[in-house]
């Protein structure tokens, strides 16, 4: 009897797995059949247009890259620092327990709430207007809990024996953390952070709330300039759009040609996410190969 149940469960499990894969496969196939012919150099380097055939995603993908970089720039240092404090320095008491529970809860808060928070703090109160900076900081808030949680997880996997070895040589706590614990945990921290980032670049709702545009026919000011000091931050304050918003905009139009544009945009977005996940997998793999405790 137990054996029959076992077999039944195995078969059911197999078909459930298959179901998930088939649905995903069908979706991707459908998108690729619609969109792939449309993906071209022109499509990547054209601004949006009223005519579907001339429209492209230049502003959108550049905006996505900007936002991704800014989100990482804000979320990564803050998240890793917070995780290091909580894991290595904070005393374990009811307050840290409370903080821990709240961070876990924050990771589950709907993204649109973060959009409202960004609108209130960055756009209105800090007066950043509908800028890339406001968008990047809002998404940084969104991924921060996930970065903190995965960084803590990575720090926790570093065995006590490594810390002891460092202390026994006369290292201070900070030297131990900086020179031994963080470098050993870094691949794990990066893996978690990149996965959080790839979630962020698919977000639409919070960016619509902080005022990302749906029709942008210019690029943000380039951060590189011809004169000294060759770098500038003016682009940070420019309005922007991102891929998911561009896609959303096209999908909501009645013309079939725009639906094809949307499919092509989805392919590009999928590729960016895919590359980011690939980097995370690569890092994890290297981590496991290089470090055996």
């Amino acid at each position: 009897m137990n054996q029959i149940l076992d077999t039944v469960f195995k078969v059911v499990g197999f078909f459930m797995t298959l179901l998930g894969l088939v649905v995903l496969g069908a979706l991707i196939t459908d998108v690729f059949m619609d969109g792939l012919p449309r993906v071209s150099w022109d499509f990547m380097t054209s601004f949006p247009s009223r005519r579907a055939g001339k429209a492209g995603i230049y502003a959108a993908w550049v905006g996505t890259v900007w936002i991704a970089i800014l989100t990482a720039f804000f979320a990564f240092p803050v998240g890793v620092a917070a995780a290091t404090y909580l894991e290595e320095y904070a005393r374990k008491n009811w307050l840290t327990d409370l903080i821990e529970i709240n961070i876990a809860n924050l990771a589950g808060v709907p993204s649109i709430i973060y959009g409202l928070l960004g609108l209130g703090i960055f756009v209105r109160w800090m007066d950043l207007d509908r800028s890339i900076l406001a968008g990047g900081m809002t998404l940084a808030l969104l991924v921060l809990p996930v970065v903190i949680l995965s960084s803590r997880e990575a720090l926790r996997t570093i065995p006590a024996s490594i810390r002891e070895a460092s202390y026994a040589l006369g290292a201070s706590k900070w030297q131990t953390i900086r020179s031994q614990v963080l470098p050993a945990a870094m691949p794990g921290i990066l893996t978690g952070s990149i996965l959080a980032m790839s979630r962020a670049i698919g977000e639409t709702a919070p960016l619509i709330i902080v005022g990302a545009l749906t029709y942008v026919s210019f690029l943000p000011t380039s951060p590189f300039s011809a004169e000294f000091p060759f770098l500038n931050a003016e682009g940070l304050f420019d309005p922007f759009s991102v891929l998911p918003i561009q896609i959303f905009n096209w999908v909501s139009r009645p013309q079939q040609a725009f639906a094809i544009n949307a499919a092509a945009g989805i392919i590009v977005l999928l590729l960016i996410t895919f590359v980011m996940n690939g980097i995370a997998v690569f890092l994890r793999h290297r981590f496991q190969k290089k470090i055996r405790w």
Partner: peptide
Amino acid sequence: RIGMVFQKPNPFPKSIYENVAYGLRI
């Protein structure tokens, strides 16, 4: 001044050279 060696060998996940040099660098 009072060094210690542990039950289970616990080298740092770094090169042989860096393992020995660490105590000097700190």
